[in-house]
């Protein structure tokens, strides 16, 4: 028996919104420790990794580990039927071929349930090596979204360059070039608005705008985003889901031909 209850279904709505550009379907691996999802986008350029810890749920029970393959568009249709402040309970029997989502209104005046067929997905699981990153940047997530959106008007790639002085986002194309520089802030009382840079070595890497823009669909999940970079390894874009877990996107860099 698997059962996971979360007071606010809006968290799931936000997660689905954040990944649906990249993934059509994905396996949710449920175990005692929580719910995990790892999946590559169709072109194998990026990887989505979601972790929702069992202790972050209001109720969590997982007698036996199970993997639930789900079509994310259909899952999104179901969550559209829930109000943001509805409580959601996800239930499945051991070895079941369906999963049930139950939504309860705050005052229990409305209870609805939706049963969805599960899919057998043959998804390969990738080992992600532990990396000490050369640069770790934390900045307001809406600011990162804004920069990606603004720069993608001018080019297909964004060069992210991190030094002690700050982070520079650059692009160029037929129109010309664009540069946005972000400096570390000294604003300690407003953590959500702060920019912090931990740098061991300066790093400059190039990434496809299309993917960065997709990742920023996760902005409503967290006020801050963390960008981790090292030479010649994928960028990690991480959104912490308060008290529940994280959503990470890995993106392979572009390299000179």
């Amino acid at each position: 028996m698997f059962e996971a209850r979360l007071v606010s279904s809006s968290t799931f709505k936000k997660i689905l919104d954040a990944v649906k550009d990249l993934l059509n379907e994905a396996s949710f691996d449920c175990s005692e420790s929580g719910i995990q999802l790892q999946a590559m986008d169709n072109s194998h350029v990026s990887l989505v990794s979601l972790m929702l810890r069992s202790d972050g749920f209001d109720k969590y029970r997982c007698d036996r580990s199970l993997t639930m393959g789900m079509n994310l568009a259909n899952m999104a249709k179901i969550f559209k039927c829930a109000n943001n402040d509805d409580t959601v309970t996800i239930k499945a029997q051991d070895d079941a071929d369906t999963v049930t989502f139950m939504f309860e209104a705050k005052k229990q005046e409305k209870i609805s349930d939706y049963e969805m067929k599960l899919m057998n997905l043959d998804q390969e699981h990738l080992g992600i090596p532990e990396t000490d990153f050369s640069c770790v940047i934390r900045m307001p997530s809406p600011e990162f979204a804004r920069i990606c959106r603004d720069l993608s008007q001018f080019g297909e790639s964004i060069v992210i360059s991190c030094t002690k002085e700050g982070v520079k986002f650059s692009t160029g194309g037929d129109i010309g070039t664009a540069n946005v520089k972000i400096a570390q802030t000294n604003n300690f009382d407003k953590e959500e608005e702060s920019v912090t840079i931990e740098m061991q070595e300066p790093v400059t890497l190039t990434f496809a705008c299309q993917y960065l823009n997709s990742f920023t669909k996760a902005t409503p999940l967290a006020p801050q985003v963390q960008l981790s970079m090292s030479d010649n390894v994928p960028l990690v874009v991480e959104y912490q889901i308060p008290d529940l877990g994280h959503l990470r996107f890995y993106l392979a860099p572009k390299i000179e031909d």
Partner: peptide
């Protein structure tokens, strides 16, 4: 010109 690498160039199957 730059070339897009695949995530599989970095992360291998478990």
């Amino acid at each position: 010109h730059s070339k897009q690498k695949s995530i599989l160039d970095y992360f291998k199957s478990d």
